[in-house]
């Protein structure tokens, strides 16, 4: 676990967090933040695509179904806990559930570098699982919120689907995947030094900004209450456990199961907030942004990843990895 903490990406996150809490004037310009997120998303897609080009299509079907099931089950479980145990209002519970069902591409990227560092092999198609899990949970949660709404102000579904499926992260991930599959390993060679070599360094840089953003939500921790803080740690554990079992039943290796568990545990903070703000406007953004960014994201990054790897080893068995 200490090994994981000494990863530059994690340390950069902590640096940003500390600098933000101490009110340093450190700021990452918004244009750089946007450029970095654009770069990271497209490279995550491309890397996945190149790996995918070496994978047989038949082996993907079952894990993708598993990922899809996770994307539907997690928001339902999260919603039930928030609504009936946490006593949150329907819009707030649904909005938070959308975030926990959807995924964080950055957590995924850190998970891959964790596995690489530990020399754990994993399935080449893992980026497909990432893409699969991005949207369904958002749709499920928004449908819950709509179901309970009494004075229905019609949601323009066409506009909504346009917004979710053509959101920046989906376009970049899927676009990168396709480009990666089409050009393959050999085709990637000439552009490798732009797209692949600097990835880990830029990921670390991006996490500096994530630390700053997370620190801006830390002061809201008091406002959101103890229950949500516990939920922000407990929910990823529940999701990761379900993810581990689905990984086992869909035949993933230890590495692949760790990735699926991490995806299940991660909470979105790019795609989900944008969609939820429009589709569930009554929900308080302080709740979902604080839970996802200031609690779950740092938890997964530090304690979560090594823990999910351990669980994957226990559940799938060491033979797989």
């Amino acid at each position: 676990m200490i090994d994981n903490l000494l990863n530059p990406a994690v340390l950069f996150f902590v640096l940003g967090l500390v600098a933000g809490i101490l009110k340093s004037d450190l700021k990452v310009p918004q244009a750089l933040y946007e450029s970095l997120s654009l770069y990271l998303l497209i490279v995550i897609g491309m890397k996945g695509g190149v790996e995918l080009s070496k994978t047989s299509i038949q082996s993907i079907g079952l894990p993708v179904m598993g990922a899809l099931a996770l994307g539907i089950v997690i928001p339902l479980v999260a919603y039930a806990i928030l609504k009936y145990v946490g006593k949150f209002s329907v819009p707030d519970a649904a909005a938070i559930a959308a975030h926990y069902g959807s995924v964080s591409a950055v957590t995924y990227a850190v998970c891959l570098s964790f596995l690489q560092k530990m020399n754990v092999p994993f399935e080449g198609f893992s980026a497909v699982l990432l893409v699969t899990m991005e949207v369904p949970a958002i749709v499920v949660a928004i449908m819950i919120a709509r179901l309970y709404r009494s004075k229905t102000q019609a949601l323009p579904w066409g506009k909504f689907f346009h917004e979710v499926f053509l959101s920046k992260s989906i376009v970049l991930l899927v676009g990168g995947l396709i480009i990666g599959v089409v050009v393959g390993d050999a085709g990637m060679e000439p552009v490798k030094n732009v797209f692949f070599d600097p990835f880990k360094g830029l990921l670390a840089f991006f996490l500096l900004e994530m630390g700053l953003v997370a620190s801006s939500r830390i002061k809201d921790l008091k406002k959101v209450g103890v229950f949500l803080v516990l939920f922000g740690i407990g929910m990823p554990l529940i999701s990761a456990l379900i993810g581990c079992w689905i990984g086992k039943f869909t035949g993933l290796s230890v590495g692949g199961t760790t990735i699926l568990a991490t995806l299940a545990a991660s909470a979105s903070y790019i795609a989900a907030p944008a969609a939820v703000r429009i589709a569930i406007p009554e929900a308080n953004p302080s709740y979902y942004l604080t839970a996802s960014l200031a609690i779950t994201f740092p938890f997964n990054l530090t304690i979560g990843l090594p823990l999910y790897y351990k669980w994957a080893q226990w559940i799938v068995g060491k033979a797989g990895g």
């Binding site: 918004q30 900004e209 801006s216 907030p273 703000r277």
Partner: peptide, 12 residues
């Protein structure tokens, strides 16, 4: 509704 620092899209 708090500081809208524009450090990222959700706070812009």
């Amino acid at each position: 509704r708090g500081v809208r620092s524009a450090v990222w899209d959700q706070a812009a």
